[in-house]
Design a protein around this nucleic acid. Sequence first.
DNA 1: AACTGCGACAACTTTTTTATTGATTAAAAA
DNA 2: TTTTTAATCAATAAAAAAGTTGTCGCAGTT
Lengths: 231, 231
Amino acid sequence: MKPILETDQDFFCDLQAPCFQTLTTDEVELVRTSKTQVLFRKGDNLTKQGTFASYVLFVIKGLARQYVEGDNNKTFNLRIIKPGEFVGLSSVFERNTFNYSSVALTDCQVFLVEKEAIAQIIRQNGTFGLGIIRRYVEQNSNLYDTLRTVMYKQMNGRIADTLLYIDSLKAENPEIFQLLSRKDMADFAGISTESAVKLLKSFEKDGLIKLNEKDIAVVNQKELLEISKKG
Amino acid sequence: MKPILETDQDFFCDLQAPCFQTLTTDEVELVRTSKTQVLFRKGDNLTKQGTFASYVLFVIKGLARQYVEGDNNKTFNLRIIKPGEFVGLSSVFERNTFNYSSVALTDCQVFLVEKEAIAQIIRQNGTFGLGIIRRYVEQNSNLYDTLRTVMYKQMNGRIADTLLYIDSLKAENPEIFQLLSRKDMADFAGISTESAVKLLKSFEKDGLIKLNEKDIAVVNQKELLEISKKG
DNA sequence: AACTGCGACAACTTTTTTATTGATTAAAAA
DNA sequence: TTTTTAATCAATAAAAAAGTTGTCGCAGTT
């Protein structure tokens, strides 16, 4: 009757992820008893901004898009969530609600771990905690970059940033561009969809990128970096 | 900065819903301190089957579709969630995870109340508890009906049931049929999309219903009831 | 005042999704 | 086994969504 199969085999296999390597047997047991595994289908929300967050998500397989929702149907994309990454970590420490939404770009196999278990493990296992902090610091730093981009750069620089960011994921996920619409790209850059379309075309004309169907190939990374820097 | 506005005004207004009328001032206060309000946009998941459930949802405005997910991308629709209804009540009492998914058919304004608050109120306010039980009993009874339909009826009876059910919501929500695709209808009846299409056409030919664009008008309810009964 | 950057709108094209239909097979019931 | 029932497959049509392009106007800058 259970819709999603979940065997111990799967479980131990999944805990091969680097960040779980330092856990003791007891700690693994703690995670095991306070976790569940869910298959999010393409288009499903992994998190919804504003809902109560009593757990942390750990993505095993698949890609998701993380975004913040504004007032009038506006969304701003923050990052692509990859396998091996946590979602909603802040719920463990500070906030009681998710402060962003996320949606599956492909089917996503995800672990949910109750936040108390994560807190407990961090308390007793410094190495694990260190890994968590490292992730936090990185996300924080990325947020500052994003903020700077939004505050100070204009269209060209923004879309260049977006292109460089998505392209940096392409090695591991060759299909990444196909999973994103022009609106998604625009929402990463914080510009209108129409502007995104025009800029992409113009970048192609200038030989910076190559558009094939939905895929995008970065041709002249150097110049894109230049545009990004210029702002 | 807060994306979704939420004033006390809104709150008190919203608690006009019948089931909250019996709450004392203290109880209202308890709900107030353990609730949050979220706007789910059309297509957003209100709940995802299998995720941890630490709260109950109460729909203020909008319509949603509740369904169970099977193994290979199969879904079976259980009901339409209307304003004034709870979602995920069972999390309060028994299960730690949502046992079904639901998705917004229109933008939905929703209250989330932490389950401990609901449990506490039920403990001290029997009238409120009675209302909850009443809802439960009704849902339970509906589930039996659904089970019977799935077990014993064949296509004609099933789609007739679906038509009668959705049509019963049409008075309050005239746009309800437009919000549902053929696949949605099929998933209510538990048949293939193609079969649903064919049956609807054939019902129209027999003068039982009338198809206009996406809307469906029940013409001969009596006969539909007959078909439903025959199975 | 003229210029720049960029969003908003409208018209239009392309792509994707959904709906429809008939033919073929699998499963269940008689 | 024969009949009935309904899913699956394939091909097509229709509708909806996404992408594209040009024009306009507003808000800051220069």
